[in-house]
């Protein structure tokens, strides 16, 4: 009850702040490609709290389960904004695609618990990257942030990543594949880590934190748009960034508040009791050249070589905060 009244009060308070001519008329419609993960909580918060509406923007989210259609759909103009992991974005940029960062989305924590975990079967004797040589590790996709962090962990813990076989397994199937012995380890992201521990806690265990052990606070995912769109309608994206960042503030102010978990449960459909066990990412507003450069070093080290433009040129003004 108190939450509802508070929310109502917030919404009312937001009304006078809105640019009056934008209210109720000709909302600019933006289609945003998202993945149903914890990282997009600020976007949903901003939608629910009316921050986008206050900026004269209507957000239409399109949920995809991976980068399969998100970035291609952005290129094709199906979306104006796409949420994606940083590695996939930078690989696209390397291929000459004009992605520009319009906002940060998520980063790993400085200390455990991470939003990623390496898991193995209890009693399998696998504790490190060294133990995984000649064995099979599951990643949801190759050459994305999950895989990169996983390989960095393998190397950091004494293993030769060239000698570890990567198997592509969708997140929802990883715990069963691991428990069934079809893979030797898996790199999971939240909420699948919490899910695996809840359902297979007796057989599976967490053996590593791939972000905080290899790149504490490392970058994870951002929102990108196409350069031409930004040049043509920069003002719309300014409004988008403002609203989204109010959503970030809303989330960051409630990191220990049950309302945040209720919000996440609402859009992701993950049962709330499971969300209570989940490690949340950090929710940054901006993107820094430094975090991108750090990631590029790691990407090149793990085989994603090539020529990348200066990272500072990839950051639109809305993300330069």
């Amino acid at each position: 009850m108190t939450q509802i009244t508070r929310r109502a009060a917030l919404t009312l308070a937001a009304l006078p702040l809105a640019a009056p001519p934008l209210l109720g008329q000709n909302l600019t419609k933006l289609r945003v490609s998202v993945i149903p993960v914890l990282d997009v909580a600020p976007l949903h918060a901003a939608i629910r709290e009316g921050y986008f509406a206050a900026e004269g923007i209507e957000i239409d989210t399109s949920t995809t389960t991976g980068g399969a259609t998100g970035l291609p759909g952005l290129i094709a103009g199906q979306f104006q904004v796409t949420f994606s992991n940083t590695v996939s974005i930078l690989l696209g940029v390397r291929e000459g695609l004009d992605f520009r960062f319009v906002s940060g989305a998520s980063r790993g924590a400085m200390t455990p618990p991470d939003i990623f975990a390496v898991m193995a079967k209890k009693g399998s004797g696998i504790r490190s990257g060294k133990d995984l040589e000649g064995k099979r590790i599951a990643s949801n996709t190759r050459n994305n942030i999950v895989w990169l962090r996983g390989m960095a962990w393998v190397e950091k813990t004494g293993g030769d990543w060239h000698r570890v076989t990567t198997v592509e397994v969708p997140f929802p199937q990883m715990a069963d594949a691991l428990a069934g012995g079809r893979i030797d380890a898996a790199i999971l992201s939240e909420p699948f880590v919490a899910g695996a521990l809840a359902t297979h806690g007796d057989t599976l265990e967490r053996i590593g934190w791939p972000i905080s052990e290899t790149a504490p606070g490392g970058t994870n995912a951002q929102y990108v748009a196409m350069k031409d769109e930004l040049n043509a309608h920069g003002e719309v994206f300014d409004r988008f960034g403002r609203a989204l960042h109010r959503g970030v503030d809303w989330v960051n102010a409630r990191l220990t508040d049950p309302v945040l978990l209720e919000l996440i449960a609402g859009f992701s459909r993950v049962p709330i009791e499971r969300l209570r066990q989940v490690a949340l990412p950090a929710y940054p507003k901006g993107v820094t050249p430094g975090e991108l450069d750090d990631l590029l070093v790691s990407m090149k080290h793990f085989g994603m070589t090539g020529t990348y433009p200066a990272t500072s040129s990839l950051i639109f003004r809305t993300a330069a905060v």
Partner: peptide, 18 residues
């Protein structure tokens, strides 16, 4: 594969939500 429509989208959502 894409979009927030129909029973296919529901299936994917539920899969991701475990």
């Amino acid at each position: 594969i894409a979009g927030e429509q129909g029973i296919g989208h529901y299936l994917v959502m539920m899969q991701f939500a475990g």
